[in-house]
Each structure stands twice: as structure tokens, then as C-alpha cells.
Design a protein around this nucleic acid. Structure first.
Lengths: 215, 215
DNA sequence: GGTATATCGATATAAGCATATCGATATACC
DNA sequence: GGTATATCGATATGCTTATATCGATATACC
């Protein structure tokens, strides 16, 4: 559980509420009830209330919540309103896609530079599409310090991931989004979030096995 | 919890164990203990034992587990040894990348065709890179039936996701991997797995806010 | 204005999951 | 061969999360 008393499970549902609220048509009613949200999202209504109570205080009986307020409270809580700088290491196929993806800003995160093990010369490269610089790894520590970057994205092969991770931490990175299919060992004040598709595929596979066997 | 008595949390760790075991050097000892695995992966050793007990029966005191056997038991359990066919709807930037990605086979899944709302003519398209067909949506039901496809990947914009989802279910799809940042409403025998990067970013952001505020 | 109802917030119960503890067993060493 | 030790599996405890229940309150309708 986080320090401001919010559980991981709750935190993981907040972006979903936000998405849903934003997807509501403009012309509709200004209020919404936990009951409605719950049934639209397939959750328990008590759970929705408890989740929302941790970011909002504005629920009124018979009325529900003011959609506009809820959205801004969620955005504020999730940090979508102030942009965090991030950097990415590994600009292969996946890394480049992430570097060029301009949708992160929507989530309060901006990838401002790429780094790559293959860029060895001191002459920096540049991403064609959106003019973001690509530096050699040697410039990582200085860059982090100068730009106060605290978020790192790892998009290198599994074999290199731990080494990259270590360098990030030494450079002051505090939160890591790891796309390499491997476990990273870190001090406990560092958060690692694994974007591991194998986990999802395992769930699908398991579900299928059960469905097909059942009947 | 699944029907063969395995919890979601356990299931989500199994691929991690497998990755780790596979990453071990060839020349090492043939056995490994839960203690070693636990410390390498930052987990409790009891948890590792409980997890492994649900797929294996071969643990021996003082010895540990036979690495080779564990790997094949995990692969078998996770369905990596028999290939499941899948299809993808939406061949934009992300969809095409997934269609061209040949790493799924490693996880027992093969994407055999793409579908797209934009392909309206009855003349089918074809992915350049690996010669996988791209069909119009009208061919979805027939294709699913003929090829007994049970897994669907959704890579369309959020606004179209629910509609695509409904069509998949009507065509016999039982498990869905959803890359659209939206909640899908489905019957309860259908498994939806959301690959939602916003959730990860929320965690990073929350962690950062705490770290920076603490000191 | 009074009553009915939808909805909220809080408390209590239950379920799922992780961690700790303990006896049992197979090897290693003397 | 006997004893020590690493490790396993199982049971028990505790924590986290989800669900169910209940009284309180703001609107709607008569």
C-alpha cells in the first residue's frame, strides 16, 4: 500500500475510471453515480465508492459525483496535470516506437531522449520523426542530473536489461518501466513496473485450457 | 482462482520463473532450490515453493528441483508446447507490429491473420513482411470457425474496441487481449486481459510523488 | 411540507493471498 | 554408519482486498 494510504489495486483502477469518465458524451448529465460506473465497468458498486472516496470528497446522496470534478481530481491525483520527464534506453524497434509515440503526454509523461548501447561515438544521433536526441550511454548520468529525470524506460534485450537498470539507478532514476522479459534486482526504494506480455498470454492460455476442457 | 486450483497471482509468476530458469547458464548444476530462485527474483521462498508445487511434484529435500524438468513442466502448464492460433483486429501501427512480431511462438501463440475495418473490398490484403493475410471484418466469423481460432487481439482505437469485441465473441473467440485503453463489457465466460500502459504509468507516477515528497 | 427513493459513507464480514513456523527427508561429512 | 544441514511440503497465522449490510442524507413527487 502506498504512503498516502491507497492500495495498489485501487490505484490500478483509477486510470480506468478516468478513461471511462472522459469517454462519456458531452451533452449528458453533469452527475454520475457509483452504481452506473460500477455496472459499466463490471465492478462492485461498493468498490467504486471506496476507490473514489480516496481521491474525492464530493459524493452526494441521490446525486452522485460531479463528472467534471471527478475527472480533474483523478487527473491531479494521477499526476496527469504536471508533465514528468522520462528517458528510454534501447532504441530498437520497440524503443523507437515508444520514443515516437506522442500519447504519453496524455498520461503526464514525456520521453525527452533516447539512449542506446550501439551509439558509441560522441556524436549524437537524432530520431527522424520527432527530433528527439539519441545519446550514447556515457551521457546518461549527466543528462539525468541536468534534467532531473526520475523515470526510465528499458527497451533493450533481456540480457542487457540488468546492466542498464543499474546504470539508471546510479544516475538517479527512481521509477522504471521495464519492457525486457526479465526480472530486475533493485534497491527497495526503486519501483520497477514490468510490462511483460508473457504474463497476459499465460492468463489467456490458462483460461482457454479450462474453457475447452469444461464442456 | 482458476478451475484447476491455481490462483491468478501464482499464474502471473509462472512465466517469470520460466524466464529465469531458461536464462540460467548451460554448464551449471542440474538442480536448483526454491531458496535460490526466491532470492534471485526477490520473492519469498515459501511462495516460490507453493507456486512450483502447483505445477511440479519433483522437489526433493537438500537437492531442490531438476531444472530441466521444471522448465518442461512450466512450458507444458503454460501451453507453450502446443501452438494456439490467434487473430488480430486492427492493423495500424501497433497492430502491424504485433502481426509482424515473431516472438509470440515462444509463448505458444501464433497470430495467423489480421483483420481491419478499413479493408472493405473483398480483395484481401497481405502483410508485406511475413506474408500473413489481412481480411475485411466480414470474413471474421467464417475464418474463426474454419480455423478454430479462440484467441483474439484487439488493436483498434478505443472508440471501436467494444464493437470489435462483440463481433469476436459472436464468432466464437473465448479469450481477448485488449490493447485499446478502454473497458470491454463481455459475458463472464470470456476472458479479457487488458494491456493498459496507463495503469503502469499511474504506478510510476504515484511512486515518484511519494519518493520526492518523503525527504 | 411530508414521504419515498436513490445514493452515499461507514462498519462488518468474508475471501484471497502472503508469510511464518514446523516436522520430514535426502544428501554430505566425519 | 551416524549426525548435521539444507531443503521440501504442509499447516497455521496474519494481512490485504473485496463484498455485504446498514444508517444517513439529499432530491423528487404527492
Amino acid at each position: 500500500m502506498g504512503l498516502h494510504g491507497i492500495s495498489k489495486s485501487t490505484l490500478s483502477r483509477l486510470p480506468v475510471y478516468l478513461e471511462y469518465l472522459k469517454s462519456l458524451p458531452e451533452g449528458g448529465p453533469p452527475n454520475i453515480s457509483a452504481t452506473i460506473i460500477a455496472s459499466a465497468l463490471g465492478l462492485g458498486e461498493v468498490q467504486v465508492r471506496k476507490d473514489l472516496a480516496s481521491v474525492s470528497t464530493a459524493g452526494k446522496p441521490k446525486i452522485g459525483y460531479l463528472i467534471r470534478d471527478l475527472i480533474s481530481e483523478l487527473e491531479s491525483f494521477l499526476g496527469y496535470d504536471n508533465l514528468n520527464s522520462a528517458l528510454i534506453v534501447g532504441v530498437g524497434k520497440l524503443g523507437r516506437a515508444l520514443l515516437e509515440y506522442d500519447g504519453f503526454a496524455r498520461y503526464g509523461i514525456e520521453i525527452i531522449a533516447g539512449f542506446d548501447l550501439a551509439v558509441t561515438s560522441e556524436q549524437d544521433a537524432m530520431d527522424e520523426k520527432n527530433r528527439k536526441p539519441i545519446y550514447p550511454m556515457s551521457k546518461l548520468p549527466g543528462f539525468c542530473r541536468e534534467n532531473a529525470v526520475k523515470i526510465g524506460v528499458i527497451a533493450v534485450p533481456a540480457a542487457a536489461a540488468q546492466q542498464v537498470c543499474d546504470q539508471m539507478i546510479k544516475s538517479g532514476i527512481l521509477a522504471i518501466l521495464n519492457f525486457a522479459p526479465t526480472h530486475l534486482v533493485t534497491p527497495e526504494n526503486i519501483l520497477v513496473r514490468n510490462e511483460n506480455i508473457a504474463v497476459s498470454l499465460a492468463m489467456l492460455s490458462d483460461h482457454l485450457a479450462q474453457q475447452l476442457q469444461e464442456k
